[in-house]
Design a protein around this nucleic acid. Structure first.
Lengths: 192, 192
DNA sequence: TGTACATCAGTGAACGCGCGTTCACTGATGTAC
DNA sequence: TGTACATCAGTGAACGCGCGTTCACTGATGTAC
């Protein structure tokens, strides 16, 4: 059992990234200290060498989940840069995104949970929502701030709804309808 | 202590309606059998004379929450009938609705929770989402099925986002922007 | 470079607590005569 | 209508369990000489 300082940093990293994945999949309440530590091959007692409390971990995991999903979204733009609004919407409102909760947009998975939470997690997500809206507005061109707000609202709502649907055809249809509407109503202008 | 059959029905009613209110406020996981029964002045043991399990109660409470919020929304239309799309959107995307989680739209509060739940609760909400979309489409006139889907997605997303925001001004701005956009882009046609 | 010691990452038993669920019991309700 | 009895709504103690958190301990790591 070698427990060097470098290993401690790696342990913390594994704890946070595992917790981040789990909250995206199953919500803020789904993480328990015991099962989380077991899933990264540590014992529950060690947890408090890394965090003051479960609540502190949740905030760190939320930050990580939001950062991860933002990074994934930006990385998808890498080949073609700058990313177009249409490409972004097509990826966001897709079957694969709907079906990968653990790897998908943390705002969509967790907005309702965070809306009921304390001020700290809400502030953390608030910043990410604002920067997501700014990013989308930027794709739509000058003075498109309002369109960015509307597009983000519709994308988050449609994704959440599509995850409720048990009828896959209907779920696909909703994603497709909102996707086509947004691209048609907002994406066209961007080409000018 | 009189425990007549009529009183049993009233007890069940109080349990479900209290649970429905609580899940709209704080999510599906927030209801515990003990505290719920205490809040309707009964003891926890009596719970199992009304429901087979906590899971069964959750499904009943979800149905009730959805029915209640639908009824509230339809009741608001009573004076002017049929309700206009613009009036509906103005009420949905308002500060008072955002601030009354316990009395507000159960789809918006619970979509993410239900999206992670078992098939039964998902089916229950699915029907309500479909009928909400149909209702909105109906307000928009013939062949407005797609617009209904988009409007419902945007309304649910915007409400969830507005509840995350700690900056009230920003929260209001998001509600206002989505509200104005929807009325402008979709509501105008309805007047023709 | 080699030894002696302090540090500290991680262990695992223990804590009090609230959870969902069960069950023997109580006593008013409802029914049969 | 009045009495005797069965029913059953609600009570509260008890169950096993998992939770978040604490703490005495272990032994490798890192440091001072």
């Amino acid at each position: 059992m070698g427990h060097s300082q470098a290993e401690k940093a790696l342990s913390r990293e594994r704890i946070i990234s595992q917790a981040a994945k789990q909250i995206r999949e199953s919500g803020l309440d789904s993480v328990s200290v015991g099962s989380l530590m077991k899933s990264v091959n540590l014992t529950h007692g060690g947890f408090y060498g890394h965090f003051e409390s479960r609540a502190e971990l949740i905030v760190e995991a939320l930050k990580r989940a939001l950062d991860d999903s933002q990074a994934t979204s930006k990385a998808a733009a890498a080949p073609a840069r700058p990313q177009t609004f249409a490409a972004m919407v097509r990826r966001y409102l897709s079957g694969p995104h709907r079906d990968s909760r653990g790897g998908g947009c943390a705002i969509a998975s967790l907005a309702a949970d965070v809306g009921r939470a304390d001020e700290l997690p809400r502030c953390v997500m608030e910043e990410h929502i604002n920067s997501f809206m700014t990013r989308i507005s930027g794709m739509l061109g000058e003075g498109a701030e309002d369109e960015g707000i509307v597009a983000v609202s519709a994308m988050i709502g449609a994704l959440a709804i599509s995850r409720v649907m048990t009828d896959t055809k209907r779920s696909d249809q909703i994603l497709r309808t909102v996707r086509d509407y947004l691209i048609d109503a907002m994406g066209e202008e961007e080409k000018k």
